[in-house]
Amino acid sequence: MTEFVLVPGAWLGAWAWAEVAPALRTAGHGALPLTLGGLAERGGESAGQQDHVADIVGAVERLDLRDVVLVGHSYSGIPVGQAAERIGGRLRRVVYVDATVPVDGQSFVDSWPGGRALVEPALAGHDGRWPPPAAADYAGQGLDAESVERLVVGGTPHPGATLTEPARLSHPAGGLPATYVKCLLDGDEPPAPAAEPLAAGRWRMVRLETGHWPMLSAPAELARVLLEAAEES
């Protein structure tokens, strides 16, 4: 039995996986959606990036999970990729869902052009937190009106330190087995750190004809991809 640990991206909590986790359990696997510190029901907590890594590692170790597939969506690829090397032999595979891939010494905002110039003023104007998108910002991502409302209502300001602090890796993330899920409504190409392991055949690429939040826009398709990833050697 594979244990899926499902980590949502910026602004979101464990609730974002509500339509994916049941499909994984029905297939006979474990599914643990996580809420990271400072978000959703944990919104009163302060958190830095290493706190988010510790949230993931701590859950795996506390529950003594084995044969783990760590799933990181968007921002959470950064802490998931770091947690993956820290859980050692418990790891089966990483799945990056339209996610940022961590690079030692680089932060989330370093990973995309103009990131600091875009994010840091927003943090300064909102008590060090990144405000969630408005409904209009979800346009063109394959989401129906109900899903957009869930994102707007459920989204919480994201703790800024997790976005600006650098990742800490002993080895490049590309050395661990992984699947990269590219959501095509959000662009055709994965981030640069994924290019080499994909080209070398160490990682598998899956393309989905949906937007950046596939757990809401295409939950059945995403669950199928995750189940396939669990079968990868």
Score class of each variant (00 low, 15 high):
Tyr75Val: 06
Thr162Met: 12
Leu123Trp: 08
Trp112Lys: 12
Tyr96Met: 03
Ala27Leu: 09
Pro113Gly: 13
Ala135Pro: 00
Glu85Ile: 04
His29Met: 02
Pro190Thr: 05
Ala47Glu: 02
Trp213His: 14
Lys182Thr: 09
Gly105Val: 10
Trp15His: 11
Leu91Cys: 06
Ser170Ile: 07
Ala117Cys: 11
Asp104Ile: 07
Asp98Thr: 09
Ala16Pro: 01
Leu185Arg: 12
Leu39Trp: 02
Ala192Phe: 11
Thr156Ser: 12
Gln50Gly: 06
Gly201Asn: 10
Thr164Ile: 12
Glu120Cys: 11
Leu12Arg: 14
Gly89His: 11
Val20Pro: 01
Ala167Val: 12
Arg204Gly: 10
Met215Phe: 12
Gly37Val: 01
Ala223Asn: 10
Leu36Asn: 00
Val68Gln: 11
Glu85Val: 01
Pro113Arg: 11
Gly140Arg: 02
Thr164Asp: 04
Glu45Thr: 05
Pro219Ile: 12
Ile78Leu: 09
Trp15Glu: 07
Gly28Val: 00
Trp213Ser: 15
Val103Ser: 13
Ala10Arg: 00
Ala40Thr: 00
Ala59Gln: 14
Met205Phe: 11
Asp127Asn: 13
Pro102Ala: 03
Trp112Asp: 13
Gly13Glu: 09
Pro113Ala: 14
Gly30Pro: 07
Gly175Val: 04
Ser107Cys: 13
Val101Tyr: 06
Arg90Val: 10
Gly38His: 00
Val97Lys: 09
Leu32Arg: 15
Ala117Glu: 15
Gly81His: 01
Trp17Lys: 07
Ala223Val: 07
Thr162Cys: 15
Val7Arg: 06
Ala195Tyr: 10
Thr100Phe: 15
Gln106Trp: 14
Pro22His: 03
Val152Asn: 03
Gln82Asp: 02
Arg168Pro: 02
Arg202Gln: 14
Lys182Pro: 00
Glu209Trp: 09
Trp203His: 10
Val119Asn: 02
Thr210Cys: 13
Val94Met: 15
His126Ser: 14
Thr100Ala: 15
Glu85Thr: 03
Val5His: 02
Arg42Trp: 09
Leu63Arg: 15
His212Tyr: 01
Glu85Met: 07
Gly187Thr: 02
Phe108Asn: 13
Val94Thr: 13
Tyr138Val: 05
Leu176Gly: 00
Leu163Thr: 05
Gln49Ala: 13
Gly142Phe: 00
Ala223Lys: 07
Val225Ala: 10
Tyr96Pro: 01
Arg204Asn: 08
Val57Gln: 00
Pro157Cys: 06
Gly174Phe: 00
Ile87Thr: 04
Pro102Glu: 05
Gly37Trp: 03
Asp64Cys: 08
Leu123Met: 07
Asp186Asn: 14
Val20Thr: 11
Ala136Arg: 15
Val148Phe: 03
Pro159His: 09
Leu198Cys: 07
Pro121Gly: 11
Ala18Arg: 15
Arg66Leu: 13
Val206Leu: 11
Pro214Tyr: 05
Leu198Gly: 02
